[in-house]
């Protein structure tokens, strides 16, 4: 199946000096790296200017040991919940039980890191809901006290 086209043969087998090839390779590599770095910088600049850059850290919260808490919170042991702050500023939280304020506090940590809060449960009313409101989050964490 080898080609029998004379032009291809000539092009394919023409012996070329290695010097032009070496020079062309060096030029091509340098041009590629410069252009690539430039393109990368351009992409970053466009993202920054358009406000469409990488997604910022989003505030969120959850219960530690969620599988157990899904069954219900007991008054025997404290529970823990985690807040991921979007800034280094403190975040306040309020826990309600049986319709009343149960405890409140402030969590502080570095942006995007887990801040673990421990909440004692021994004075909670069994057979009622525990809700934890956190500044910045529209929806509260919520668990049933058994």
């Amino acid at each position: 199946m080898a080609t029998d086209d004379p032009v291809s043969q000539e092009l394919a087998t023409r012996q070329r000096g290695l010097r032009p090839t070496a020079v062309a390779s060096i030029v091509a590599c340098a041009a590629l790296l410069v252009a690539s770095l430039g393109a990368g910088a351009l992409v970053n600049w466009v993202q920054r200017e358009s406000g469409a850059g990488p997604v910022a850290v989003k505030e969120r919260a959850w219960f530690q040991d969620a599988t157990s808490i899904s069954h219900g919170v007991t008054v025997l042991a404290p529970i823990q919940f985690v807040i991921v702050p979007t800034s280094d500023s403190p975040i306040s939280w309020v826990a309600y039980n049986n319709g009343k304020t149960y405890q409140r506090g402030i969590a502080q940590g570095k942006t995007g890191t887990d801040v673990v809060v421990t909440l004692p449960t021994w004075t909670m009313k069994p057979g009622s809901w525990l809700t934890i409101g956190i500044t910045g989050l529209h929806q509260s964490l919520k668990a049933w006290v058994t």
Binding site: W62, A66, G72, S140, A143, T146
Partner: peptide
């Protein structure tokens, strides 16, 4: 769902509801 189930995870845009407490 909010009336029957715990909320185990919240981010303002996403929620994870837990199971209905057995007593309920």
């Amino acid at each position: 769902f909010a009336s029957m189930r715990p909320v185990l995870y919240t981010s303002g845009t996403d929620l994870v509801y837990g199971q209905i407490p057995s007593v309920l």
